[in-house]
Design a protein around this nucleic acid. Sequence first.
DNA 1: ACGCTTATGTTGAACCTTCAAGTTAGTATA
DNA 2: TATACTAACTTGAAGGTTCAACATAAGCGT
Lengths: 169, 169
Amino acid sequence: MSGNDEGKSDQPDTRWLDAEQQEAWLTLIALVTRLPAALDTQLQRDSALTHFEYFVLASLSGEANRRLQLSLLAQRANASLSRLSHVVTKMEKAGWVRRESIRGSRGSDAVLTDEGMAKVVEAAPPHVESVRSLIFDGLSADQVRQLSELSGAMLTQLDKSIASGTGRA
Amino acid sequence: MSGNDEGKSDQPDTRWLDAEQQEAWLTLIALVTRLPAALDTQLQRDSALTHFEYFVLASLSGEANRRLQLSLLAQRANASLSRLSHVVTKMEKAGWVRRESIRGSRGSDAVLTDEGMAKVVEAAPPHVESVRSLIFDGLSADQVRQLSELSGAMLTQLDKSIASGTGRA
DNA sequence: ACGCTTATGTTGAACCTTCAAGTTAGTATA
DNA sequence: TATACTAACTTGAAGGTTCAACATAAGCGT
Protein backbone atom coordinates (compact mmCIF):
# COMPACT_ATOMS: atom_id res chain seq x y z
CA MET A 1 0.00 0.00 0.00
CA SER A 2 1.07 3.52 -0.56
CA GLY A 3 -0.45 6.89 -0.86
CA ASN A 4 -2.12 9.35 1.37
CA ASP A 5 -5.72 9.83 2.10
CA GLU A 6 -6.02 13.01 3.98
CA GLY A 7 -9.57 13.55 4.71
CA LYS A 8 -12.26 11.03 4.37
CA SER A 9 -11.89 8.24 6.83
CA ASP A 10 -13.66 7.30 10.03
CA GLN A 11 -10.59 5.77 11.59
CA PRO A 12 -8.06 8.02 13.19
CA ASP A 13 -6.16 8.96 10.06
CA THR A 14 -3.18 6.73 9.59
CA ARG A 15 0.01 8.66 9.34
CA TRP A 16 1.81 7.07 6.46
CA LEU A 17 5.52 6.99 6.02
CA ASP A 18 7.09 9.81 4.06
CA ALA A 19 9.02 9.09 0.86
CA GLU A 20 12.38 8.73 2.55
CA GLN A 21 11.00 6.50 5.24
CA GLN A 22 9.32 4.33 2.67
CA GLU A 23 12.52 3.88 0.76
CA ALA A 24 14.45 3.11 3.91
CA TRP A 25 11.79 0.66 4.98
CA LEU A 26 11.80 -1.27 1.72
CA THR A 27 15.56 -1.58 1.74
CA LEU A 28 15.59 -2.59 5.37
CA ILE A 29 12.97 -5.27 4.78
CA ALA A 30 14.95 -6.59 1.86
CA LEU A 31 18.02 -6.73 4.07
CA VAL A 32 16.43 -8.47 7.02
CA THR A 33 14.90 -10.99 4.65
CA ARG A 34 17.87 -11.73 2.44
CA LEU A 35 20.73 -11.62 4.90
CA PRO A 36 19.46 -14.44 7.11
CA ALA A 37 18.71 -16.48 4.02
CA ALA A 38 22.26 -15.99 2.77
CA LEU A 39 23.74 -16.92 6.14
CA ASP A 40 21.65 -20.04 6.37
CA THR A 41 22.58 -21.08 2.87
CA GLN A 42 26.29 -20.80 3.54
CA LEU A 43 26.24 -22.53 6.90
CA GLN A 44 23.93 -25.23 5.68
CA ARG A 45 26.14 -26.03 2.76
CA ASP A 46 29.51 -25.76 4.46
CA SER A 47 28.67 -27.07 7.91
CA ALA A 48 25.14 -28.46 7.92
CA LEU A 49 24.10 -25.90 10.50
CA THR A 50 21.38 -23.29 10.62
CA HIS A 51 22.61 -19.84 11.44
CA PHE A 52 20.72 -20.01 14.69
CA GLU A 53 22.48 -23.22 15.68
CA TYR A 54 25.80 -21.68 14.79
CA PHE A 55 25.03 -18.61 16.80
CA VAL A 56 24.12 -20.68 19.84
CA LEU A 57 27.29 -22.73 19.61
CA ALA A 58 29.38 -19.62 19.07
CA SER A 59 27.74 -17.89 22.02
CA LEU A 60 28.52 -20.79 24.31
CA SER A 61 32.08 -21.05 23.03
CA GLY A 62 32.69 -17.43 23.97
CA GLU A 63 31.41 -17.95 27.46
CA ALA A 64 33.54 -18.61 30.52
CA ASN A 65 33.29 -22.35 31.18
CA ARG A 66 31.46 -22.69 27.92
CA ARG A 67 28.14 -22.73 29.69
CA LEU A 68 25.14 -20.51 30.07
CA GLN A 69 21.71 -20.80 31.59
CA LEU A 70 19.06 -21.52 28.99
CA SER A 71 16.99 -18.43 29.62
CA LEU A 72 20.06 -16.21 29.34
CA LEU A 73 21.26 -18.01 26.27
CA ALA A 74 17.85 -17.47 24.70
CA GLN A 75 18.14 -13.73 25.30
CA ARG A 76 21.67 -13.70 23.97
CA ALA A 77 20.52 -15.46 20.83
CA ASN A 78 17.44 -13.27 20.37
CA ALA A 79 15.18 -16.27 20.60
CA SER A 80 12.27 -17.58 22.60
CA LEU A 81 13.00 -20.13 25.27
CA SER A 82 10.90 -22.62 23.40
CA ARG A 83 12.89 -22.23 20.24
CA LEU A 84 16.13 -22.60 22.14
CA SER A 85 14.90 -25.64 24.02
CA HIS A 86 14.03 -27.47 20.82
CA VAL A 87 17.38 -26.63 19.31
CA VAL A 88 19.31 -27.62 22.43
CA THR A 89 17.51 -30.95 22.35
CA LYS A 90 18.62 -31.45 18.79
CA MET A 91 22.20 -30.47 19.55
CA GLU A 92 22.23 -32.66 22.60
CA LYS A 93 21.42 -35.59 20.36
CA ALA A 94 24.26 -34.53 18.10
CA GLY A 95 26.57 -34.54 21.12
CA TRP A 96 27.49 -30.85 20.89
CA VAL A 97 25.80 -29.70 24.04
CA ARG A 98 24.55 -31.16 27.26
CA ARG A 99 22.13 -29.85 29.85
CA GLU A 100 23.09 -29.49 33.46
CA SER A 101 20.67 -28.44 36.13
CA ILE A 102 21.77 -25.71 38.45
CA ARG A 103 21.53 -26.68 42.08
CA GLY A 104 19.83 -24.13 44.26
CA SER A 105 18.08 -22.57 41.32
CA ARG A 106 15.30 -23.63 39.03
CA GLY A 107 17.33 -23.12 35.90
CA SER A 108 19.55 -25.33 33.78
CA ASP A 109 22.76 -24.61 31.94
CA ALA A 110 23.56 -25.54 28.40
CA VAL A 111 27.16 -26.73 28.34
CA LEU A 112 29.25 -26.93 25.20
CA THR A 113 30.94 -30.33 24.86
CA ASP A 114 34.33 -30.88 23.26
CA GLU A 115 32.61 -32.15 20.15
CA GLY A 116 30.50 -29.02 20.15
CA MET A 117 33.59 -26.90 20.46
CA ALA A 118 35.21 -28.79 17.62
CA LYS A 119 32.14 -28.19 15.51
CA VAL A 120 32.23 -24.40 15.97
CA VAL A 121 35.94 -24.26 15.42
CA GLU A 122 35.46 -26.04 12.15
CA ALA A 123 32.44 -24.01 11.08
CA ALA A 124 33.78 -20.58 12.01
CA PRO A 125 36.39 -19.89 9.32
CA PRO A 126 34.20 -20.34 6.26
CA HIS A 127 31.40 -18.54 8.03
CA VAL A 128 33.52 -15.54 8.90
CA GLU A 129 34.83 -15.42 5.37
CA SER A 130 31.31 -15.41 4.09
CA VAL A 131 30.30 -12.62 6.47
CA ARG A 132 33.17 -10.51 5.23
CA SER A 133 32.27 -11.19 1.66
CA LEU A 134 28.54 -10.72 2.08
CA ILE A 135 28.69 -7.55 4.14
CA PHE A 136 31.94 -6.01 5.25
CA ASP A 137 33.74 -6.01 1.94
CA GLY A 138 31.13 -3.51 0.84
CA LEU A 139 31.46 -1.15 3.81
CA SER A 140 34.02 1.48 4.71
CA ALA A 141 35.26 1.74 8.30
CA ASP A 142 33.00 4.73 8.67
CA GLN A 143 30.02 2.83 7.46
CA VAL A 144 30.76 0.04 9.90
CA ARG A 145 30.58 2.57 12.71
CA GLN A 146 27.35 3.97 11.30
CA LEU A 147 25.97 0.49 11.11
CA SER A 148 26.63 -0.12 14.79
CA GLU A 149 24.99 3.12 15.78
CA LEU A 150 22.00 2.73 13.55
CA SER A 151 21.35 -0.89 14.43
CA GLY A 152 21.78 -0.02 18.07
CA ALA A 153 19.31 2.84 17.77
CA MET A 154 16.77 0.60 16.10
CA LEU A 155 17.15 -2.11 18.71
CA THR A 156 16.69 0.42 21.46
CA GLN A 157 13.55 1.71 19.81
CA LEU A 158 12.32 -1.83 19.22
CA ASP A 159 12.68 -2.71 22.86
CA LYS A 160 11.13 0.53 23.95
CA SER A 161 8.18 0.13 21.67
CA ILE A 162 7.59 -3.46 22.65
CA ALA A 163 7.96 -2.69 26.34
CA SER A 164 5.50 0.17 26.16
CA GLY A 165 3.04 -1.83 24.13
CA THR A 166 2.74 1.14 21.80
CA GLY A 167 4.12 -0.75 18.87
CA ARG A 168 1.89 -3.58 19.96
CA ALA A 169 4.44 -6.11 18.84
CA MET B 1 51.42 -42.26 6.73
CA SER B 2 51.12 -38.73 5.67
CA GLY B 3 54.24 -36.74 5.53
CA ASN B 4 53.17 -33.99 3.32
CA ASP B 5 52.38 -31.10 5.59
CA GLU B 6 55.19 -28.70 6.16
CA GLY B 7 53.75 -25.93 8.24
CA LYS B 8 51.35 -26.65 10.99
CA SER B 9 48.26 -25.21 9.43
CA ASP B 10 47.05 -26.21 6.02
CA GLN B 11 44.21 -23.73 6.00
CA PRO B 12 44.81 -20.15 4.99
CA ASP B 13 44.64 -18.29 8.28
CA THR B 14 41.20 -16.96 8.80
CA ARG B 15 41.00 -13.20 8.87
CA TRP B 16 38.71 -12.48 11.77
CA LEU B 17 36.58 -9.39 12.13
CA ASP B 18 38.06 -6.44 13.92
CA ALA B 19 36.46 -5.11 17.10
CA GLU B 20 34.24 -2.57 15.36
CA GLN B 21 33.08 -5.07 12.80
CA GLN B 22 32.28 -7.57 15.52
CA GLU B 23 30.16 -5.09 17.37
CA ALA B 24 28.38 -4.04 14.21
CA TRP B 25 27.81 -7.65 13.31
CA LEU B 26 26.28 -8.58 16.65
CA THR B 27 23.90 -5.64 16.57
CA LEU B 28 22.98 -6.33 12.98
CA ILE B 29 22.24 -9.97 13.74
CA ALA B 30 20.08 -8.93 16.66
CA LEU B 31 18.20 -6.56 14.41
CA VAL B 32 17.59 -8.98 11.57
CA THR B 33 16.41 -11.54 14.09
CA ARG B 34 14.18 -9.39 16.25
CA LEU B 35 12.62 -7.07 13.73
CA PRO B 36 10.95 -9.78 11.66
CA ALA B 37 9.72 -11.41 14.85
CA ALA B 38 8.18 -8.14 15.99
CA LEU B 39 6.51 -7.56 12.63
CA ASP B 40 5.09 -11.05 12.58
CA THR B 41 3.78 -10.69 16.09
CA GLN B 42 1.93 -7.49 15.33
CA LEU B 43 0.45 -8.64 12.04
CA GLN B 44 -0.49 -12.00 13.42
CA ARG B 45 -2.31 -10.49 16.33
CA ASP B 46 -4.00 -7.61 14.54
CA SER B 47 -4.71 -9.18 11.16
CA ALA B 48 -3.89 -12.90 11.29
CA LEU B 49 -1.22 -12.44 8.64
CA THR B 50 2.45 -13.25 8.48
CA HIS B 51 4.62 -10.34 7.49
CA PHE B 52 5.46 -12.15 4.30
CA GLU B 53 1.79 -12.52 3.39
CA TYR B 54 1.23 -8.86 4.14
CA PHE B 55 4.17 -7.89 2.03
CA VAL B 56 2.91 -9.91 -0.91
CA LEU B 57 -0.56 -8.41 -0.67
CA ALA B 58 0.88 -4.93 -0.30
CA SER B 59 3.17 -5.45 -3.27
CA LEU B 60 0.28 -6.50 -5.46
CA SER B 61 -1.87 -3.63 -4.25
CA GLY B 62 0.77 -1.16 -5.34
CA GLU B 63 0.98 -2.65 -8.78
CA ALA B 64 -0.81 -1.40 -11.87
CA ASN B 65 -3.81 -3.68 -12.35
CA ARG B 66 -3.01 -5.29 -9.05
CA ARG B 67 -1.23 -8.13 -10.73
CA LEU B 68 2.29 -9.38 -11.12
CA GLN B 69 3.95 -12.44 -12.56
CA LEU B 70 4.86 -14.95 -9.87
CA SER B 71 8.57 -14.96 -10.57
CA LEU B 72 8.70 -11.16 -10.46
CA LEU B 73 6.59 -11.07 -7.34
CA ALA B 74 8.96 -13.52 -5.72
CA GLN B 75 11.89 -11.22 -6.46
CA ARG B 76 9.97 -8.23 -5.24
CA ALA B 77 9.20 -10.03 -2.01
CA ASN B 78 12.74 -11.33 -1.56
CA ALA B 79 11.53 -14.89 -1.59
CA SER B 80 12.04 -18.12 -3.45
CA LEU B 81 9.48 -19.04 -6.04
CA SER B 82 8.60 -22.09 -4.01
CA ARG B 83 7.86 -20.07 -0.92
CA LEU B 84 5.72 -17.70 -2.91
CA SER B 85 3.86 -20.48 -4.65
CA HIS B 86 2.90 -22.08 -1.35
CA VAL B 87 1.73 -18.77 0.03
CA VAL B 88 -0.21 -17.87 -3.10
CA THR B 89 -1.96 -21.22 -2.84
CA LYS B 90 -2.93 -20.43 0.71
CA MET B 91 -4.12 -16.95 -0.18
CA GLU B 92 -6.01 -18.26 -3.14
CA LYS B 93 -7.96 -20.47 -0.76
CA ALA B 94 -8.62 -17.43 1.39
CA GLY B 95 -9.95 -15.64 -1.69
CA TRP B 96 -7.41 -12.82 -1.63
CA VAL B 97 -5.57 -13.72 -4.79
CA ARG B 98 -6.15 -15.71 -7.93
CA ARG B 99 -3.76 -17.07 -10.49
CA GLU B 100 -4.06 -16.21 -14.14
CA SER B 101 -1.88 -17.73 -16.80
CA ILE B 102 -0.28 -15.32 -19.20
CA ARG B 103 -0.98 -16.11 -22.81
CA GLY B 104 2.03 -16.12 -25.02
CA SER B 105 4.37 -16.67 -22.11
CA ARG B 106 5.09 -19.51 -19.77
CA GLY B 107 4.40 -17.49 -16.67
CA SER B 108 1.36 -16.83 -14.54
CA ASP B 109 0.20 -13.71 -12.78
CA ALA B 110 -0.97 -13.44 -9.23
CA VAL B 111 -3.96 -11.11 -9.20
CA LEU B 112 -5.23 -9.36 -6.11
CA THR B 113 -8.98 -9.83 -5.70
CA ASP B 114 -11.30 -7.27 -4.15
CA GLU B 115 -11.33 -9.28 -0.94
CA GLY B 116 -7.56 -9.28 -1.01
CA MET B 117 -7.53 -5.54 -1.50
CA ALA B 118 -9.94 -5.13 1.37
CA LYS B 119 -7.69 -7.27 3.53
CA VAL B 120 -4.61 -5.09 2.93
CA VAL B 121 -6.56 -1.92 3.38
CA GLU B 122 -7.70 -3.17 6.73
CA ALA B 123 -4.31 -4.48 7.78
CA ALA B 124 -2.22 -1.52 6.67
CA PRO B 125 -3.04 1.15 9.25
CA PRO B 126 -2.13 -0.79 12.39
CA HIS B 127 0.88 -2.18 10.62
CA VAL B 128 2.18 1.20 9.57
CA GLU B 129 1.61 2.50 13.06
CA SER B 130 3.61 -0.37 14.42
CA VAL B 131 6.44 0.25 11.95
CA ARG B 132 6.61 3.86 13.03
CA SER B 133 6.62 2.90 16.64
CA LEU B 134 9.09 0.04 16.29
CA ILE B 135 11.60 1.83 14.10
CA PHE B 136 11.02 5.34 12.84
CA ASP B 137 10.10 6.97 16.10
CA GLY B 138 13.68 6.25 17.16
CA LEU B 139 15.36 7.71 14.09
CA SER B 140 16.09 11.25 12.99
CA ALA B 141 15.56 12.27 9.39
CA ASP B 142 19.30 12.06 8.94
CA GLN B 143 19.40 8.57 10.31
CA VAL B 144 16.62 7.53 7.97
CA ARG B 145 18.76 8.67 5.07
CA GLN B 146 21.76 6.83 6.49
CA LEU B 147 19.62 3.74 6.86
CA SER B 148 18.67 3.80 3.19
CA GLU B 149 22.24 4.21 2.12
CA LEU B 150 23.64 1.61 4.43
CA SER B 151 20.99 -0.99 3.71
CA GLY B 152 21.39 -0.30 0.03
CA ALA B 153 25.14 -0.75 0.26
CA MET B 154 24.72 -4.03 2.10
CA LEU B 155 22.20 -5.33 -0.41
CA THR B 156 24.50 -4.41 -3.25
CA GLN B 157 27.35 -6.23 -1.60
CA LEU B 158 25.13 -9.20 -0.82
CA ASP B 159 24.11 -9.55 -4.43
CA LYS B 160 27.63 -9.08 -5.63
CA SER B 161 29.00 -11.66 -3.25
CA ILE B 162 26.32 -14.18 -4.07
CA ALA B 163 26.68 -13.61 -7.80
CA SER B 164 30.44 -14.06 -7.70
CA GLY B 165 30.20 -17.13 -5.55
CA THR B 166 32.87 -15.64 -3.32
CA GLY B 167 30.57 -15.42 -0.38
CA ARG B 168 29.45 -18.86 -1.31
CA ALA B 169 25.98 -18.13 -0.16
C1' DA C 1 9.14 -31.46 -37.22
C1' DC C 2 12.22 -33.21 -33.75
C1' DG C 3 14.72 -33.28 -29.76
C1' DC C 4 17.42 -30.52 -26.40
C1' DT C 5 17.69 -26.94 -23.23
C1' DT C 6 15.93 -23.47 -20.25
C1' DA C 7 12.42 -20.78 -17.74
C1' DT C 8 8.53 -21.06 -14.85
C1' DG C 9 5.91 -22.99 -11.62
C1' DT C 10 4.15 -26.88 -8.41
C1' DT C 11 4.38 -30.37 -4.98
C1' DG C 12 5.31 -33.31 -0.89
C1' DA C 13 8.43 -34.42 2.64
C1' DA C 14 11.61 -32.89 6.00
C1' DC C 15 12.66 -29.49 8.98
C1' DC C 16 12.13 -25.40 11.91
C1' DT C 17 9.49 -22.15 14.69
C1' DT C 18 5.59 -20.73 17.19
C1' DC C 19 1.90 -21.26 20.22
C1' DA C 20 -0.43 -22.92 24.00
C1' DA C 21 -0.62 -26.19 27.47
C1' DG C 22 1.75 -28.72 30.84
C1' DT C 23 5.55 -29.82 34.24
C1' DT C 24 8.78 -28.87 37.80
C1' DA C 25 10.78 -26.61 41.41
C1' DG C 26 11.81 -22.49 43.92
C1' DT C 27 9.36 -18.59 46.49
C1' DA C 28 6.05 -16.22 49.02
C1' DT C 29 2.05 -15.82 51.94
C1' DA C 30 -1.11 -17.09 55.36
C1' DT D 1 3.22 -26.32 57.28
C1' DA D 2 0.13 -25.77 53.63
C1' DT D 3 -1.26 -23.26 49.78
C1' DA D 4 -0.76 -20.43 46.10
C1' DC D 5 2.19 -18.22 42.96
C1' DT D 6 5.71 -17.67 39.69
C1' DA D 7 9.96 -18.55 36.94
C1' DA D 8 12.24 -21.78 34.08
C1' DC D 9 11.75 -25.11 31.10
C1' DT D 10 9.54 -28.82 28.08
C1' DT D 11 6.49 -30.72 24.83
C1' DG D 12 3.33 -31.75 20.95
C1' DA D 13 0.68 -29.92 17.42
C1' DA D 14 -0.05 -26.54 13.93
C1' DG D 15 1.75 -23.87 10.60
C1' DG D 16 5.50 -22.00 7.60
C1' DT D 17 9.82 -22.61 4.78
C1' DT D 18 13.19 -25.11 2.31
C1' DC D 19 14.81 -28.57 -0.58
C1' DA D 20 14.74 -31.61 -4.26
C1' DA D 21 12.13 -33.76 -7.60
C1' DC D 22 8.85 -33.12 -10.92
C1' DA D 23 5.79 -31.04 -14.60
C1' DT D 24 4.99 -27.94 -18.25
C1' DA D 25 5.77 -25.11 -21.89
C1' DA D 26 8.66 -21.88 -24.58
C1' DG D 27 12.74 -21.18 -27.28
C1' DC D 28 16.48 -23.00 -30.12
C1' DG D 29 19.24 -25.52 -33.25
C1' DT D 30 19.17 -29.05 -36.61
